[in-house]
Amino acid sequence: MPEEKMVNIYIMNKQYEVPAGVTIMKAMEFAGYQFVRGCGCRGGFCGACGTVYRKPGDFRLRSGLACQLQAEEGMYLAQIPFYPANRSTYDLQELTPELSTILTHYPEVTRCLGCNQCTKICPQGLDVMDYIAAAQRGDVEKAAHMSFDCIMCGLCVSRCPAEIVHYNVGILCRRLYGRHIIPKAEHLAKRVEEIKSGKFDGELNDLMGKSQEELTKIYDDRDMEQ
């Protein structure tokens, strides 16, 4: 770690000297924070550590995940570990993958002003406004695929003048697509039936009764699918 080079960052308006280039999460810990909120997987998957910041002399509001974003001189930052969100309750099995379903559960998608702030702030670089547009048209499949990499950090929600909760629209579309649009796997249903009928019980019991030596030999000799 290039600890010889230090930079000053401002965590909620307090100045700290931290090693240049470390992630904001590690920089905050170096500064003395022990997280309860605002820290999760530390690997860019969980959305716990959404962070907004500005740089000196620049009016733009920037964003990132504290676990991925690197400390730079003069960064002026705050975490947004939680943002209140509207969430609809539904029985997925009863739904149909169409526009009326989306409008029933999240009618506010039609209030989108097209300002694109959601896309601009997304730390995953998703085209958030475009997947909301797809949802507005009832294009569940497109919204599902476009929102797939969403980590539900909620930064989009914090910026939306139409008060849309984008990530909840996204997961509704993904679950509709996964359950009702893409066909079920026939080989899977067949295998489940075979298991429930006890087809493999005998063979499994036989293996369970084998010694370590017997298993080792069968294992070394087993054929590998290429």
């Binding site: 697509y177 996964g178 359950r179 009702h180 893409i182 080989h187 899977l188």
Partner: peptide, 22 residues
Amino acid sequence: PICIEWLENFGAMFSKFPDGTM
């Protein structure tokens, strides 16, 4: 397989071929 089918029913988006094959 029972667990995979459980998730499929919950709409989990496994990578599939167009005919539904995993």
